[in-house]
Simulated assay, not measured.
Amino acid sequence: MTFEQSGMSRRALLAAAALLPLPVGRAEASAAAPPSAKAYYDRAARLAGHDPVLRQLVKGLSPGAQMPTVQAPKPLRIFDNVAVVSTGFVSATALLTSQGVILIDALESPDQAEKIIVPQLRSLGADPSAIKYVVVAHAHSDHFGGAQYLADRYGARVMMSPADWALVARDSSPHVPKRDLDIAHGQRLTLGDSTITFHHTPGHTPGTVSPIFPVRWKGRRHTAMLWGGTNPPAATAEKRTYVSSVLAFAAAMRRAGVDVELMNHGMSDNGLVRMEELRAAPAGRANPFVLGSARAQRFMQVMEIMLRGRIATDEAAGTTARPAAMTASSSPACC
């Protein structure tokens, strides 16, 4: 049966083949060893090719990767209905609807909420008093730090997954928000003309959430995802959970027709660079956050392969034991 007869495109077959173990000698095929960590990392690099977004993802997921210190960008509407405010290290993403704002993440502190989120949203024509929901993508202080300030000042409801509400309850940060609304897997939240769908993607933390939501660029509709937490956890078992999350979310992306990729740490996916590209030529080129559905799927494939490499690195080093009980402050910081 040909690939046309099977209903699979050549591109789909090639993508599937990229995830198969690397070839070995025929005599050894029946007892082939699993790919080495380097084989996974090399495969991810080949799949990324010259794509700057995917190459940055490979870099960010490599062992020992460190996030550099960068200057905070000026705020920007990256879509007609999406605004981003950022410290450079971490960003908050505002979905602007006809009846208010859904804010994804709240930076690191009440001070940053007051001095960055509030005035910068105003500078983009968005009213911070219209923030109805603060969605905390995961329970690290650089994402929940300003949430309680926004709840107290504007009456915003704070949302987090149950697993991460439990995690943040053990955090020593003075900025932990009061427990408010739980986010269920598959939950849909509608505000005005927009509906956002939440997916539990555990891995970075036990309750990381990644949303899918509609965006518009020059009046044309697209569908965006925002990956909720990138840096792999320490424990190998949790890295395997992360791989499962990547596979499940990639399938959800296909079903939803996702063609836009976003992250809350713009250094991990070249997001800060793309902001400046868009700012420099807002009317003269395609929006660099619109990857197209095939490239968005390739983004997830690169992430999966890099995580499998990180698991192989653990196994080669004999470091697969689960660490002591995790707290929000002791789990892998940021990203």
Rank of each mutant, 00 (worst) to 15 (best):
L96Q: 07
A147W: 05
P177K: 02
L76K: 02
A325K: 13
Q301C: 07
A325C: 00
D111E: 12
L278M: 12
D180I: 01
E108N: 12
M8G: 00
H199D: 13
A130I: 04
I131C: 05
T2G: 13
L291Q: 10
A333M: 11
P211E: 04
L61D: 05
G292I: 10
L247C: 09
M326Q: 14
A15P: 00
R122P: 00
G228Y: 06
N264L: 15
L103P: 00
G146F: 04
G49L: 12
T236L: 12
M263R: 14
A224Q: 12
H265F: 15
Q301E: 13
Q99W: 00
L124H: 03
R310H: 06
A251H: 15
L103W: 03
S330N: 15
A94L: 08
P73N: 09
G207R: 03
L19I: 04
G155F: 03
V176Q: 05
A32N: 09
P21C: 13
P73R: 10
M275C: 10
N81M: 03
Y133H: 14
A126D: 02
T319S: 14
A224R: 06
A325Q: 12
D127K: 09
M8E: 09
Q301N: 10
Q120I: 00
V209E: 06
T327C: 05
A250L: 07
P63Q: 10
A235H: 11
A224Y: 13
E261H: 11
H140D: 14
R220H: 10
Q120Y: 04
I117L: 03
W227P: 00
A65G: 01
I183P: 00
T320M: 09
M326Y: 09
L103S: 05
L191K: 03
E108M: 11
E261A: 14
Y41L: 10
R43K: 13
H204Q: 14
R255W: 00
Y41G: 03
T69S: 06
L167P: 02
V290I: 11
L107E: 04
V258L: 08
A237Q: 12
P282I: 07
V302A: 06
M263Y: 06
L121S: 03
A283S: 14
R240C: 08
G88Q: 04
L272F: 10
A286D: 15
R55D: 01
P202C: 08
